[in-house]
Design a protein around this nucleic acid. Structure first.
Lengths: 103, 103
DNA sequence: GCAATAACTTACTGAAAAGTAGTATAGTTA
DNA sequence: TAACTATACTACTTTTCAGTAAGTTATTGC
């Protein structure tokens, strides 16, 4: 917790309240993925934003990054325990969108 | 639904995935509030961002705005049915932040 | 020895978000 | 008549976000 927040919601949004973070976390719910595979699942994300976002998620301890020392490089991302604890929320957000855009 | 989304989560984040929107919605969960009162509850928000954000929430049908034709002006905001349907999510996000920042 | 590879980085640019400060409103109160 | 009120709007500036395109790495396959 690097900032004071008057409301825990504020704290949560600072962690995951951006365009791409929830998407990336969501696509990791089913298990770890190789960098390139994960990126292809996030339609519309640029290479730069992808790297930048997973880096932030890693810094915040929501995902882990495993580098295999091979050539060409191989990197795998997966949810940390902390990231996993967001599962219910991520699915609820997804579900809400599904229900809502019917109307 | 004004855009195509490959994932409902994306749709949801486009609606409420900003710095202030969830905060404002959250503080309306207990009932409608007068503009000035609501704004004072959102610590750190500027007058401009407040007006701009409630306007967007209103445009998206998440809150309603009732104007009383008196001087000085009196304006009240409250959650619409659509906004209310976010209650579980807002509380879950808040709760998650509470739990998480213990560690 | 030269291209292809996967993951990442950097420089540059443009767009969007957010903050500051000031203005308008029009009745009521002093 | 002048200050006060609650709400909102505007112009301006600063900050952050995001995209493009190019460069880096070290090994393999041709």
């Amino acid at each position: 917790m690097n900032k004071a927040h008057h409301c825990p919601l504020n704290y949560t949004m600072n962690l995951i309240g951006t365009k791409w973070k929830p998407l990336i976390l969501f696509h990791l719910l089913e298990g770890g993925l190789r960098s390139g595979v994960l990126q292809k699942k996030i339609l519309g994300i640029s290479n730069k934003m992808f790297t930048q976002t997973v880096r932030q998620l890693e810094d915040d301890g929501l995902i882990t990054r495993k580098v295999y020392p091979v050539v060409p490089p191989k990197v795998e991302y997966q949810l940390s325990a902390r990231g996993q604890s967001l599962e219910a929320i991520l699915r609820a957000l997804d579900q809400w969108g599904l229900e809502d855009c019917k109307s």
